[in-house]
Amino acid sequence: MVIAGWIIVALLFLVGMAGAVYPILPGALAIYAAFFVYGFFVSFEHFGFWFWSIQTATVAVLFIADYAVNAWGVKKFGGSKASIIGSTIGVVVGLFIPFGLLIGPLLGAIIGELFAGSDFQKSLKVGFGSVVGLFSSIVVKIVLQAFMIVIFFIWIFN
């Protein structure tokens, strides 16, 4: 049972890290679920108040940062609320087309900004900002999710 638990934990960690880049995957929630799988298959003995507090706070920060960093990229380049919404829709639609994670938010923000009444030059700038925000968000997620995994290993092997 222990080996099966470790295999599931490893798979959930992989899914979680892939979710940092590919937003349709559960990301941080997969990593968080891995802790419960470890507990059920191996032991909850290593986990206490501080472990769960740190991990839960990190997941909360990840959810907030995911939206905030992307919106920051759009706002930093002068975007409106319409371009933030367009960029978000573009990410979702982009999941289903080749290079969609790059093209989707770019086109979504451009279209949103055009609907808000901006000229094409400004809309293009805002679209670029949405891509900067998306990639910044990916970096933040990778760092924080790696932090979650490192804390897990420190806690169980310490």
Rank of each mutant, 00 (worst) to 15 (best):
M1F: 11
V2E: 14
G5H: 03
W6G: 05
W6L: 15
V9H: 00
A10V: 13
L12I: 06
L14Y: 09
V15Y: 04
M17C: 07
A20I: 03
A20Y: 01
A20W: 00
Y22E: 10
I24Q: 13
L25W: 09
A28R: 00
A30V: 07
Y32R: 01
Y32C: 02
Y32W: 11
Y32K: 02
Y32P: 00
A33I: 09
A34H: 01
A34W: 00
A34Y: 00
F36G: 08
V37P: 00
V37F: 01
V37G: 01
Y38C: 00
F40N: 14
F40Y: 14
F41S: 15
F41V: 11
V42A: 12
S43K: 10
E45L: 10
H46F: 13
H46L: 10
H46Y: 14
G48V: 08
W50C: 07
W52E: 08
S53F: 14
S53I: 10
I54Q: 05
I54L: 13
Q55H: 11
T56I: 10
T58K: 00
A60T: 14
A60G: 14
V61M: 13
V61E: 04
L62A: 08
I64L: 15
D66Q: 10
V69Q: 08
V69F: 09
N70I: 01
N70G: 15
N70M: 13
W72E: 06
G73R: 01
V74F: 03
K76P: 07
K76T: 11
F77I: 07
K81R: 15
A82L: 13
A82T: 10
I84R: 06
S87F: 04
S87C: 12
T88Y: 05
V92S: 10
V93W: 06
G94A: 08
L95F: 12
F96H: 08
F99E: 10
F99M: 13
G100Q: 03
G100S: 06
L101I: 11
P105S: 08
P105Q: 07
L106H: 03
L107N: 03
G108T: 04
I110P: 00
I111R: 05
G112I: 00
E113F: 05
A116C: 08
D119E: 12
F120C: 09
F120D: 08
S123Q: 04
S123P: 07
L124S: 10
L124Y: 13
V126T: 06
V126M: 07
V126C: 05
G127P: 02
G127Q: 03
G127T: 05
G127F: 02
G129Q: 03
V131L: 13
V131C: 07
V131K: 02
L134Q: 11
F135N: 09
S137V: 05
S137P: 03
I138A: 07
I138V: 15
V139L: 15
V140E: 00
K141W: 02
I142H: 01
V143M: 11
V143C: 08
L144V: 04
L144G: 02
L144W: 01
Q145W: 01
A146H: 05
M148S: 09
I151Y: 14
I151R: 05
I154T: 11
I154H: 05
W155K: 15
W155T: 15
F157K: 12
N158K: 13
N158H: 13
